[in-house]
Simulated assay, not measured.
Amino acid sequence: MSFTMNDTYDALPNPATQPAFYEGVGVKRLLAWVVDTVLIGTIAAIVASIPLFLLWFVFPLVFLVVSLIYRIGSIRAYSATPGMQLFNVELRAHDGQRLDGSAAALHTIAFMIASAFFIPQIASVFLMLMTERGQGLHDMFTGVVAINKPSRY
């Protein structure tokens, strides 16, 4: 029996037969990332200011912790960050289900690791633009796909 990448994602919408689930997701993810980064930066600035501005000396660490909590919490609860929700994008696991807590944590940590280095960042953006499911490196590693949120009607 042979194995192909498509065998892994059989429960997800097929990009060839259901392209509407993937149309514009790359651009929406970029815009969602901008919204989320602004929100995380704002929350981190508030948190850093609470203890008499002392946490401003370790602001990158505060930003990292706030980002982890923000991303893992929102993806666990909604299978999307607030920025993704704004643009009607949702993350789905390889079996087509919404992400649970462990999958949200793994995806967020993989995203942060890929974002920490220039080459994986560029490779992820390139893959999001070139692959049929629009997955970045961290998406492929965790088996996650971003799709346009299915309508409930």
Rank of each mutant, 00 (worst) to 15 (best):
L106M: 14
D100L: 15
A114I: 00
I113F: 05
A116S: 11
F117W: 09
P120A: 02
D95T: 01
D100N: 12
V125Y: 03
G101D: 06
S124K: 09
S124Y: 06
F111S: 12
V125H: 01
G96K: 00
G101L: 13
A103G: 02
I113G: 02
S124L: 06
I113E: 03
L106W: 07
D95G: 01
A123C: 10
I122S: 01
L99I: 00
G96V: 00
A116K: 03
A103R: 07
S124T: 11
G96D: 10
A104P: 13
I119D: 14
F117C: 01
R98P: 09
A103S: 04
G101C: 11
H107T: 11
I113W: 04
I113V: 13
P120V: 04
G96I: 00
Q97T: 14
A110M: 04
F117S: 00
V125I: 14
A110Q: 08
Q97K: 14
Q121H: 09
D95S: 01
Q97I: 06
A103N: 00
T108F: 15
Q121I: 03
S115M: 14
F111K: 03
A105S: 11
G96M: 00
F117L: 14
G101W: 11
A110E: 08
L106N: 14
D95Y: 07
A114E: 07
I122H: 01
D100M: 15
H107G: 08
G96F: 01
A105T: 13
F118S: 08
V125W: 05
A123G: 03
I109M: 07
H94N: 15
H94Q: 15
A123Q: 05
A105C: 07
F118Q: 09
F118R: 04
G101M: 12
F111A: 08
Q97V: 07
H94W: 01
F111W: 12
D95V: 04
H94L: 15
S115C: 14
I113D: 07
M112A: 11
A110L: 08
S102V: 08
Q121R: 14
G96Y: 00
L99S: 05
I109R: 12
A123Y: 04
T108H: 14
A114N: 14
R98G: 15
P120Y: 12
A116M: 01
T108S: 07
I119N: 14
D95N: 02
Q97M: 13
V125E: 09
A103Y: 10
A103D: 01
I119K: 13
I119C: 10
S102G: 03
Q97E: 13
A104N: 15
Q121V: 04
F118A: 13
A104F: 05
G96A: 05
A114R: 13
Q97N: 11
D100I: 15
A103Q: 08
M112Y: 15
L99P: 01
S124G: 06
A104K: 14
G96L: 00
I119T: 12
H107Q: 06
I109N: 11
H94Y: 02
A110C: 06
S124N: 05
L106Q: 13
G96W: 01
P120E: 09
A104M: 09
Q121M: 10
G96E: 06
A110K: 09
R98F: 06
R98W: 08
H107E: 02
S115F: 12
A110V: 07
S124F: 06
A123P: 02
S102Q: 13
G101F: 13
T108D: 08
I113N: 05
